[in-house]
Amino acid sequence: MKTIALTVATAALGTDAFADSSLPGMTGTDHVGFTVPSVDEAVTFSQDVIGCNVFYPLGPFSGGDSTWMADHLNVDAKAEIPTMQLVRCGYGANFEIFEYTAPDQDTKLPRNSDIGGHHIAFYTTDMDGAVSYLQDKGIEVLGNPTTMTDGPSAGETWVYFLAPWGMQLELVSYPDGKAYEAEYDERLWDPRP
Results as ranks from 00 to 15, higher is better:
Met69Thr: 06
Ile50Pro: 00
Val54Cys: 03
Ala5Val: 13
Glu80Asn: 09
Ser21Glu: 12
Thr27Glu: 09
Pro103Met: 11
Pro57Phe: 03
Asp30Ala: 13
Met84His: 01
Tyr100Gln: 08
Val75Ser: 00
Thr67Val: 05
Leu86Pro: 00
Asp20Tyr: 13
Phe34Tyr: 15
Pro37Gly: 08
Arg111Asp: 14
Gly92Leu: 04
Lys78Tyr: 06
Asp30Gln: 08
Tyr123Arg: 15
Asp48Val: 04
His31Ile: 02
Asp104Cys: 05
Pro82Ser: 03
Ala77Ser: 09
His72Asp: 12
Gly63Asn: 02
Gly116His: 09
Gln47Leu: 01
Ser21Trp: 09
Gly28Thr: 12
Thr3Ser: 11
Ala130Val: 11
Ser62Asp: 15
Thr44Ala: 15
Leu6Pro: 00
Ser62Lys: 03
Ala130Gly: 04
Val43Pro: 00
Ser46Pro: 06
Gly117Asn: 09
Glu99Trp: 02
Tyr100Met: 13
Asn112Met: 14
Ala12Met: 14
Asp106Gly: 03
Pro37Lys: 10
Glu80Ile: 15
Asp104Gln: 07
Lys108Phe: 05
Pro24Tyr: 04
Gln47Thr: 11
Asp16Trp: 12
Val36Thr: 06
Phe34Ala: 04
Ala11Gln: 12
Leu109Trp: 08
Gly90Glu: 02
Phe34Arg: 05
Ile50Val: 13
Ala19Ile: 15
Glu41Met: 10
Val49Ala: 00
Thr27Phe: 05
Asp114Tyr: 11
Tyr100His: 14
Val32Pro: 04
Met69Lys: 06
Asp128Lys: 15
Gly51Trp: 04
Pro103Phe: 10
Met1Trp: 05
Asp126His: 13
Asn74Gly: 10
Cys52Met: 12
Ile115Lys: 12
Gln47Pro: 01
Lys108His: 10
Thr27Ile: 12
Ala79Trp: 01
Ser38Tyr: 03
Asp30Met: 09
Phe34Ser: 03
Ala130Gln: 12
His31Gly: 07
Ala17Ser: 14
Asp128His: 11
His118Asn: 13
Gly51Glu: 04
Asp30Glu: 14
Gln85Leu: 05
Asp65Lys: 13
Val39Gln: 12
Gly25Tyr: 11
Val54Ile: 14
Gly59Met: 01
Phe95Ser: 01
Ser62Phe: 10
Leu73Thr: 04
Ala70Lys: 08
Asp20Thr: 15
Thr124Val: 13
Pro57Lys: 07
Thr10Cys: 05
Val75Tyr: 02
Cys89Lys: 00
Thr27Ala: 04
Leu73Gln: 05
Val39Ile: 12
His118Ser: 15
Leu73Met: 09
Asp126Val: 13
Trp68Lys: 10
Phe61Arg: 13
Gln47Ile: 01
Arg88Ala: 07
Ser62Arg: 01
Ala17Tyr: 15
Met1Lys: 14
Thr7Trp: 07
Leu73Ile: 04
Phe98Thr: 00
Thr29Pro: 06
Ser46Met: 09
Thr3Gln: 12
Leu23Ile: 13
Gly90Asp: 11
Ser66Val: 13
Pro82Val: 03
Gly25Ala: 09
Pro24Gln: 11
Ala93Ile: 04
Pro57Tyr: 10
Ala42Asn: 02
Ala79Gln: 03
Thr44Gly: 00
Leu73Arg: 00
Tyr91Glu: 11
Gly33Thr: 06
Ile81Lys: 01
Lys78Val: 04
Val49Trp: 02
Asp126Ser: 14
Thr3Leu: 11
Phe122Trp: 14
Thr29Asn: 10
Met69Cys: 08
Leu86Glu: 09
Gly117Phe: 12
Asn53Lys: 14
Asp71Ile: 07
